[in-house]
Design a protein around this nucleic acid. Structure first.
Lengths: 199, 199, 199, 199
DNA sequence: TCATAATCGAGACGGTACGTCGGGTCTTCGG
DNA sequence: CCGAAGACCCGACGTACCGTCTCGATTATGA
C-alpha cells in the first residue's frame, strides 16, 4: 500500500458485466440496510458505498428492491433451505424453528422483513416478492407437508396453505413487532397443527 | 362588484386549533392511502388534498406517521373494540374473526398494515406504533384472556402473549402477503389454543 | 423582581393607541437594522423584539418600510435639519458636510441607505420614500439654494436639482459602496458648483 | 406510434456543464428583474422561467446575486467598456455620459442598481459586488485618469477616487431616485473636475 | 491488428418532496 | 376598541434523491 495511490480504483472488465461491481452493490445494499435501516437505503447511497456509478445500478436492477431480492434469495437458500427429501416431524419442526431464528436474528432475515414491509407500500414490490421469493418457497413448503403427510409423519388438520400460514405467521408477526418468539410457541403450534387430535 | 369573490375560503377559528383543518388532514391522509397507496402519501399531497397549508400539518403532527396513527386509533376503537366485560369463548373468537375482517377488508385495516410496514423502515414509527397502538391494545387483549381464564371460559395452553401472537399472527401474515385468511384457520386456532386438549 | 412573575407584561391603555407599543416597534426596527442588517428586519422579528403582536404592527403600519420611514423622518429632522432662515455659503457647505456625516456614520443614516436600497426592489417603497422623505426635503433644499442665490451668497452654475444631485450624489454613492467620503471632495464640489468661475 | 413523442426535451451534454442551461438561467434572471422587479426574482421563479431544475442553479451559483453579477459583468463589458488605450478629454466625458445612459436607460443598468441596493441589505452581496464588479472597474477607471493625466489631456484637481466618485456619484444617485440625469450635469462636472482652474 | 461494441466511473440534468421560515389575514380573549 | 397571542394559507428557501442522459476511459471480441 503506497500513500501515493489513495484510490487504487477497481479496474473493470471491459466488454462483459463486471462481477466485482455486482457483488459490491449487493453487499453495500445489505450493509446499509443492516446498519442504517431501509430509510437510508437509497440508490445514491448504495452507489456511493459500493464505489459504483448510479448508472451501473440502473443498468442491471430495475429498482433497489430487486437488489434486496437478489441478496435475500441467495442468503435464504444458503441459510434457510426448505428441507428436501423425505421429512420427519422433527425436520419440519426444525424448519419452523430455523425460520424463527432467520427472521428474528439473522441479518438476512431483516431483508425479508424490509421487503415484506415495502410490499405494503408498493405493488411492484409485492409482485416481485411473491414471484421471486414467497411463491417458489411456498411451493416447496407445500411439497414438504405433502411428502410428510404421505409418509405418515404428520397429519395436518388444516389445508396446506392454512397450515403454513398458521405456523409461520406468528413468527413473522413477532419479528415485525420487534418481539422475540415466545418459548414454546413454535413447538406447541407444530404439535397442534401437524398431529391429528387422536395422536 | 359581487361576482368577484372567488374564494369562499373556509374561515378558521382564531386563537384555537381549527378542528375542521384537523379532520380534513385525517381524511385526506386516509383517502390518499386507500386510493394511491403509501407511496403517494406525502405531506405535500395531504396538504393539497386537505386544502391546508403544509405548516399547519407540521404544527400539529411531527410526521405523516402520526397522522395515520391518529386515524388508526380512532377507527380501530370504533370498528374493532377489544371486548370488555366478561368474555365468553365465543366473544373471544368473535374478536379474532373481527380482527381478520378488519385487517383484510376494512380500509382502516390498511392503515395498520401500512404502519406495521413503515415501522420496519423507521425506528421512530416502530416506537410510536407500539406506544400508541400495539401496546395499549395488547394490554386489553391480555386482560381479555385473563378474565376469560378466571371465568373458566377458556384455558389457554400458552402464555398470554404467545397465545395472542399465535392467534393474530397468521391473520396479519395473510393480510401482509395479500392472501385471504383461509377458511377454518381462525376457528381451529381458537379451539386448539384456548381449550385444553382434554376438553 | 419576583420569580413568580416572569413576564411583567407592559400594560396597555385600552381604547386608545398605545404609544409605548408604537415606540417599542420603532426602536426594535431601528435596533434590528443596525445590529443585524435589513435582511433580519422581518415583521416577525420586530414584533418579537418589541414584545408586540404582529397584528399590532399591521394595524398601524402598512409595511416595515413605513416603520423605517417613521424613524428616518423623526431622526433626520433632529440630526440633519435643512438650514432655515438666511443661509450663508458656509452654512450650505456645512449642510452638505453634515449630510456626509449622517449618511456614513450616523446609525440613522443607515436607515436612509436601506430605504434607498429597498426602493430599487419595490416600487411602493420608492413611492413612499419620495413622498414622505426625499420630496419634502428636496423642496427645502431648493429653497435653501434659492434664498442663498437671491442673497448673493452663492451663484450656482447649474439648475437647483442638478446642483443638489451633484453635491449629494457623490456622498450617497460613497456611502452605498461602503467608502468614506474622500477628504476635500465636498469642499471642492461646493466651491466649483456654488461659486461662479470668475468669483 | 410516432406522434406520441411529446417531449423534445432539450438534450444535455453529459458530464460537462450544460451551457444552454447556463444561458437560460442568466436570461431568465435578467428578464424577471426587468419585468417584475427584484422582489419577483426568486430562485424558484428563475428555475421555472428558464425551464431548469432548482438544483442546477444551486449547483453553479451560490445565490441569485451571483447570477445577476454574471449578467452584469458580461453586459457591462459589452455595452459600457472602460476606454482603453490613450484617452482624450472627450473620450473620458463620453464614458461618463455612457455610464449615465447605461444606468438610467439600459436594462442591464437596472441590474447594477439592484445589486447596489441588495449590497445594502446583505454584506455578502456587498463583498461580491466589490470584488467582481466595482473593484476591477475602478482599477481601470483609475488607469484611465492616470493615462489621461500623463498625456496632459486632463488635470484633475482631486485624487483619482474622489474624482471618479464625484463624476459617477450624481449619475448613480439620480438613477437610484428614479430621476433622469439633468442636462448639463455631466458636462459641467467633467469640465470643473478634469480641467485645471487656469484652463 | 485494430475497429467495434459494451461496460464502467463520473456527474449534470429536470423533477418532486422534504421540513423551515416569514408574509399578511384572521379570530379569540382580557383589559 | 386596543393589544397580545397565535392559528391559518401561501409560497420561497436550500437539500436530498429520483431516474435519465452523456461523457471519456477501458477492455474483450471478431473482421
Amino acid at each position: 500500500m503506497s500513500a501515493a495511490k489513495p484510490q487504487p480504483r477497481r479496474v473493470h472488465s471491459g466488454n462483459r458485466r463486471d462481477d466485482a461491481a455486482r457483488l459490491a452493490v449487493l453487499h453495500a445494499a445489505d450493509d446499509l440496510l443492516v446498519e442504517h435501516g431501509f430509510g437510508a437505503l437509497t440508490v445514491e447511497a448504495i452507489a456511493r458505498r459500493a464505489g459504483v456509478a448510479k448508472q451501473t445500478i440502473y443498468r442491471w436492477w430495475p429498482s433497489k428492491v430487486e437488489i434486496l431480492l437478489d441478496t435475500l434469495i441467495e442468503d435464504s437458500e444458503k441459510r434457510l433451505p426448505v428441507p428436501a427429501g423425505s421429512p420427519t416431524a422433527d425436520s419440519i419442526r426444525g424448519y419452523v424453528r430455523g425460520f424463527a431464528r432467520f427472521v428474528t436474528r439473522d441479518p438476512a432475515g431483516k431483508v425479508l422483513l424490509a421487503l415484506l414491509a415495502e410490499a405494503q407500500h408498493d405493488p411492484g414490490t409485492a409482485k416481485s416478492l411473491h414471484e421471486r421469493f414467497l411463491g417458489p418457497r411456498r411451493v416447496r413448503e407445500r411439497e414438504l407437508l405433502a411428502t410428510g403427510t404421505e409418509a405418515g409423519e404428520i397429519a395436518p388438520k388444516l389445508g396446506p396453505d392454512a397450515t403454513i400460514d398458521a405456523l409461520l405467521g406468528p413468527v413473522v408477526y413477532c419479528a415485525l413487532t420487534g418481539a422475540s418468539v415466545p418459548r414454546g410457541l413454535v413447538d406447541t403450534l407444530c404439535e397442534d397443527l401437524l398431529r391429528p387430535r387422536a395422536d
